[in-house]
Amino acid sequence: MSRLWGSTWWRVGLVATACAVGTGTAMAGGLTGPAAPARPAPAAHAPAAPAAPPPPTASDGASAGRPADRQPPEAERSGLRVVEAEAAQVAPGGTTTLRALIANYGPDPTDANFAVKVRIPARVTPVGPYFPGDCRPDPAEANGLDCTFDTGLPLLRTAVLEIPVQVDGGVLGGQRLDGGLVTVYDPDHPDISHSRAFAVQTN
């Protein structure tokens, strides 16, 4: 009888425990319930890009790509140019004259003396008389002359350099003797010069 009683109470206690566990689980489920959907976080706002500056206009005092205060380079402001430099064809052993035309394109007149250097091709010899008269052998050039115009050159005027030369008699007919060069130096811009090449052609 005592064994049956004890067994009965064990079973009752087990059922009660199971009910309590089930009730607790059900209560816990009722307390928590289904999870509420998460609210999306507000979107971050990127800072607005600064507005691009307007393109330059005439009132800005500048045009696109060229500031208003940009000065032209020195080479553009130098007015003296060797426009032409040539000599007529000549027979071997004969004499011809190199003529070089020098122009002042401005923007200013050249009041001071200006210098011209002449390099004569090999197998050709300067013989004179020269114009201008102040032409002397160039100490730095084996076959060259240093010439000086002593009157300056007004704006948009020209000057002519004339150098008689003689071709070596051993040169063949139809031969072109290259290597000549005429260079003018602007006295208002001592570091600037302008050159033009020339050749002597035999016939």
Results as ranks from 00 to 15, higher is better:
residue 71 Q to N: 03
residue 127 V to N: 03
residue 34 P to L: 12
residue 28 A to R: 11
residue 201 Q to L: 07
residue 170 G to W: 05
residue 149 F to N: 00
residue 105 Y to C: 08
residue 196 R to N: 10
residue 146 D to F: 05
residue 63 S to I: 15
residue 176 R to D: 10
residue 105 Y to W: 12
residue 140 A to M: 11
residue 194 H to D: 15
residue 93 G to H: 09
residue 83 V to E: 15
residue 108 D to H: 05
residue 148 T to W: 02
residue 8 T to H: 07
residue 202 T to H: 11
residue 202 T to P: 10
residue 74 E to M: 03
residue 25 T to E: 10
residue 116 V to K: 01
residue 95 T to R: 13
residue 157 R to Q: 15
residue 8 T to V: 08
residue 101 L to T: 10
residue 52 A to H: 03
residue 72 P to K: 11
residue 75 A to Y: 14
residue 93 G to I: 02
residue 85 A to C: 09
residue 27 M to V: 15
residue 107 P to S: 12
residue 99 R to W: 03
residue 82 V to S: 04
residue 31 L to C: 04
residue 168 D to M: 05
residue 26 A to C: 04
residue 18 A to M: 10
residue 165 V to L: 06
residue 27 M to T: 15
residue 84 E to F: 09
residue 131 F to A: 13
residue 63 S to C: 08
residue 196 R to G: 03
residue 203 N to W: 04
residue 197 A to F: 00
residue 181 L to V: 06
residue 130 Y to C: 05
residue 27 M to Y: 15
residue 187 P to W: 00
residue 97 T to F: 05
residue 124 V to T: 04
residue 37 P to C: 06
residue 202 T to R: 09
residue 165 V to C: 06
residue 98 L to I: 03
residue 131 F to G: 09
residue 107 P to T: 08
residue 89 Q to L: 05
residue 3 R to V: 09
residue 96 T to F: 01
residue 78 S to W: 04
residue 73 P to S: 14
residue 32 T to W: 07
residue 181 L to D: 15
residue 174 G to Y: 07
residue 26 A to M: 08
residue 159 A to Q: 01
residue 95 T to D: 13
residue 140 A to E: 14
residue 192 I to S: 15
residue 167 V to Q: 02
residue 46 A to Y: 00
residue 189 H to Y: 12
residue 179 G to D: 00
residue 171 V to M: 00
residue 9 W to L: 12
residue 86 E to L: 13
residue 1 M to Q: 06
residue 11 R to G: 03
residue 11 R to E: 06
residue 80 L to G: 09
residue 142 A to I: 10
residue 196 R to T: 05
residue 160 V to P: 01
residue 181 L to Y: 03
residue 59 S to C: 07
residue 36 A to G: 15
residue 61 G to W: 11
residue 156 L to F: 14
residue 72 P to T: 14
residue 149 F to K: 00
residue 152 G to W: 02
residue 27 M to D: 06
residue 45 H to D: 06
residue 138 D to W: 01
residue 103 A to Y: 14
residue 39 R to S: 12
residue 47 P to W: 01
residue 159 A to M: 03
residue 173 G to M: 07
